[in-house]
Write a protein that binds this DNA or RNA. Sequence first.
DNA 1: GCAATACATCAGTTCTCGCTGATATCACAA
DNA 2: TTGTGATATCAGCGAGAACTGATGTATTGC
Lengths: 98, 98
Amino acid sequence: MPIETLRLLADPLRAQILGLLARESLCTCHLIEETGASQTNVSNHLRLLREAGLVSSEPCGRYTYYRLRPERLRELADTLSDVADAAVANSETKRPCP
Amino acid sequence: MPIETLRLLADPLRAQILGLLARESLCTCHLIEETGASQTNVSNHLRLLREAGLVSSEPCGRYTYYRLRPERLRELADTLSDVADAAVANSETKRPCP
DNA sequence: GCAATACATCAGTTCTCGCTGATATCACAA
DNA sequence: TTGTGATATCAGCGAGAACTGATGTATTGC
């Protein structure tokens, strides 16, 4: 279901978190510091991202490291690319109105 | 701003409309029939999609034909692909906790 | 001209979802 | 073991977005 992935990516804070994690693995305290958002808020978003398979978490002492998983992003990129291809291929097709 | 494009794609009805338009150009009455949604609702969504440059509209008598524009979809697909690439490239990078 | 169809617009209602505040848990240090 | 810092969870609130209903505007057919 790429629609759920799209919904998760469409939030500014979640997008920012994923952008930060694309550069390096970070723990929650880093993400709170970088985004300026509250701890609760960041933690809630990370939960959603983890459940959707967009990030993976790795406990490290009292810290928790988060890493961006590329699989869902690639799936989505491919799907969007396919839709764009189809639009070009069928640009002349037109269903007639009765 | 791909975030606005993401937000528009994240709605089930809008996604369905774009999926239908990827196969062929359709007028509003077709989209109402195919989706089962109300005329007002479809028209409102088409307005948003048009303003965002995701579809283009062409008046044809009393009908209005809509066509899917691939540009924004490609941009988004490329952006997501780049993020996925970055995640793979920096998978070993890890910011230390103090 | 008149009725009907296709479509757009706007105000209002409903509902989803992001944010907050309070609380719980766990690890580490003194 | 007591305290502190890092993180997770949950209930409730509020802003925003989707959907509806009413209305307006063309265009076509009679």
